[in-house]
Design a protein around this nucleic acid. Structure first.
Length: 271
RNA sequence: GGGUGUGUCGCAUAGUGGCAAUUGCACUGGGCUGUAAACUCAGCGGCCUUCCGGCCUCCGCAGGUUCGAGUCCUGCCGCACCCA
């Protein structure tokens, strides 16, 4: 459930699991997309559901793991994405309009959806117009979860989290993240595209643009760690809202024997 | 020792005598219907208040001028640069 690990070639910077680390367990939805092309949540919803159904059909229990909250929701069917593909021409046209005009547009097309878009970024208002212009209205996104799900979250204080982020980042840099990104860049993607591939990728790419052959400085590590920490906090905000998540501290998970606990949860969920 | 500057909310920065004081970063909280590691909103001296708002404290320290001082004056302290 990771919006960046789907891409081929983004390994160190996304912390993608290695073959040895998999211990023979099948992992899904890794390396399924080309970094040159945009991969969307809507596609992920399809791919994830297929993978889940395939695993279930073999009588196994799928474990969804990762930090892209939106992708998890979409994969489980907690959010339905209307089947309206992006219309770049329309988007271009709408981007030239002022916010007020766009709001008037969506109010005319779908007053109910318009209400929920108050204070939302332009991009989402444009998307709503895009949907409404095809379907007439923006359909209500109703929950349609076909699976029994147990959700587990690990609760860590911000200080603890920041420490972990720093050690992780340092080991990624030692592990060759900078050259991974340099190589990736030489294959074409612009820095703008690189930013879409993730924090590390955008940040390092921008740094490379202005410091071709310099050595990576410690200040850059600190700054990047800060950006990652910001992101981690946004993730917390997202998951905090989910009432179904059972939260555990890292100590609790260790004390309990993690695998045993998962098995117990599986049994409960199935029965 | 002499001269010239300078001291504003964690850091940085704005501030014609009417200012609880600009902006950026950081920090805190929030939103999320095909870009989600994206995008985006709000709060940020304290206390009270349902909205409007009210009260107190505040721009290095101490005095002064003024109806009124972050802004002007004096002294002190800290810092910076220049001349010795």
């Amino acid at each position: 459930m990771d919006s960046r690990q789907v891409y081929k070639g983004l390994d160190i910077g996304t912390g993608k699991i290695t073959d040895e680390e998999m211990c023979g367990i099948s992992h899904y939805l890794l390396d399924i997309a080309d970094p040159k092309e945009r991969y969307h949540a809507a596609q992920f919803a399809i791919d994830a559901k297929n993978a889940i159904d395939e695993i279930l059909s073999r009588g196994k229990v799928p474990i969804l793991c990762g930090g892209t909250g939106y992708y998890i929701k979409v994969a489980l069917g907690e959010i339905q994405i209307p089947d309206v593909p992006p219309n770049e021409i329309l988007r271009k046209k709408l981007e030239d309009k002022a916010r007020n005009e766009l709001i008037t547009d969506i109010e005319r097309l779908d007053p109910i959806r318009a209400k929920s878009l108050e204070g939302e970024p332009l991009r989402r208002i444009i998307r709503a117009i895009e949907i409404a212009s095809v379907l007439g209205l923006v359909p209500q996104s109703k929950r349609d979860v076909k699976y029994n799900v147990s959700k587990i979250g690990i609760n860590i204080s911000n200080e603890e989290l920041d420490k972990k982020i720093m050690t992780r980042l340092k080991s990624r840099i030692l592990g060759g993240m900078i050259s991974e990104i340099r190589n990736l860049k030489s294959n074409g993607p612009s820095s703008e595209r690189m930013s879409e591939l993730g924090l590390e990728y955008g940040f390092v790419s921008r740094w490379l643009d202005s410091n071709h052959d310099k050595n990576w400085p410690d200040e850059a590590t600190a700054k990047l760690a800060q950006e990652i920490s910001h992101y981690a906090k946004r993730q917390k905000t997202w998951f905090k809202k989910d009432q179904e998540i059972q939260w555990f501290t890292p100590e609790e998970l260790q004390g309990k024997s993690f695998l045993g606990m998962i098995q117990e949860l599986c049994r409960k969920t199935i029965s």
